[in-house]
Design a protein around this nucleic acid. Structure first.
Lengths: 211, 211
DNA sequence: ATATTCTATATTGTATACAATTAAGCTTCA
DNA sequence: TGAAGCTTAATTGTATACAATATAGAATAT
């Protein structure tokens, strides 16, 4: 519902403001903001209001540490449960990623990359863990927006392609290992040394968390 | 706020009803229920209302699988970061667990056991993962309420004692392994074959998730 | 000119009021 | 007797109104 904002971290999200945009009352706006706050996409300060979250370097690190803990095992599970239909879906995802990259649409590429990871979690058929991963990937969008070092080549869908191959083969060990190293690569494309000054140009990125 | 209910799974949580008990308006009750719904302690059905969650065997299994994935690594982290003050706190926890068990207060014992695990996550100093673990432990209370096979000796604080010892020693490998086997033991104290018929006597247990 | 305090405005927190949907009870009919 | 349908009551969903808090601006003092 609220999910169409494309806003820079720390942006104030006034209740009246949003309500007017979407033609709903503050009641529903507040509910949506609280929901987003729970997955830490927005931060609510009592009597102050809601702001787009701006993860600290530490929070950013934790997000990727958590992903490193959950996703490799999930990829392994996916490899053991995957169906031909799932493989189709994954390959389609990758094709779309290629299209986005060729079109130079980085925001969409990151969005699709996130969905790819979520899709793998879905295949693993572990709802509880999948939910955790979904929130982590949503937060990852913010982290990438803030800490991505542009010189680094993010979203090389090469890694995704290899991952799909090992999952299709049912090679659990390889899938787990590929996911692990993929996450390490992602992490090393970030510069987590200190709080970012740049905070703009997130517009393209927040759509990565929208449906 | 709402956290003092001691209710059986599937119990209807009427908004007026709760609001009258706590002398607040439905507005704040709804916010609380939505918050609890997000951690899956209550289930909200649109236009129907909120109900205390009643995890299926599958959900129950997933909760413990997720814990098995997160907590051993967390125990390892705790062992590497622990301070003398932390050890004091943990030992105090165990002492209280003993008291509760001696007093035959099973509900309180389970509550304390959960807090013990949360405390270890806190020591590990990983807020993101700690949050996940907290929600898992809250849900575990429901799971235990529904699926615990009573013949089994739950809450033997023996395991906790050994865990504290290895953490205090900074023995990361041992801490991780002890946590892993502790969770296996917990799991094997459950009977997850099918949906429970018994659903009562949860009153003592839901206080395990209260603060 | 700068800082500080006081006042006014704006925004959030909470309660109430209204609308929509569901649940329950009653009547009616087979 | 039981089931289907209608009517009424109760409950949730949403909007609005009021209260509390914080923010911004102006006036004053140093």
């Amino acid at each position: 519902m609220i999910h169409e904002h494309r806003l820079a971290p720390s942006t104030k999200l006034g209740e009246d403001e949003i309500g007017e945009i979407y033609k709903v009352s503050r009641t529903v706006v507040r509910a949506a903001l609280q929901s987003l706050a729970h997955v830490q996409l927005v931060e609510i300060q009592r009597n102050k209001g809601a702001f787009v979250a701006s993860p600290t370097p530490r929070e950013a690190r934790e997000v990727f540490e958590a992903r490193a803990l959950l996703e490799p095992r999930t990829a392994r599970s996916a490899a053991s449960r995957v169906t031909p239909r799932d493989i189709e879906i994954l390959k389609d995802h990758i094709a779309q990623e290629h299209l986005a990259l060729d079109a130079g649409d980085n925001g969409r590429a990151i969005n699709l990359s996130g969905r790819f990871h979520i899709e793998i979690a879905r295949i693993a058929d572990q709802d509880t863990i999948s939910q955790f991963i979904e929130t982590l990937i949503a937060r990852s969008s913010l982290v990438i927006a803030l800490y991505w070092r542009r010189e680094s080549a993010l979203c090389e869908s090469h890694a995704h392609h290899a991952l799909v191959q090992s999952i299709a083969d049912g090679d659990e060990q390889n899938a787990e290992e590929l996911m692990r190293s993929h996450l390490v690569d992602l992490n090393s494309a970030l510069d987590l040394r200190d709080r970012p000054v740049r905070a703009q140009n997130l517009r393209e990125l927040l759509q990565a968390t929208d449906q």
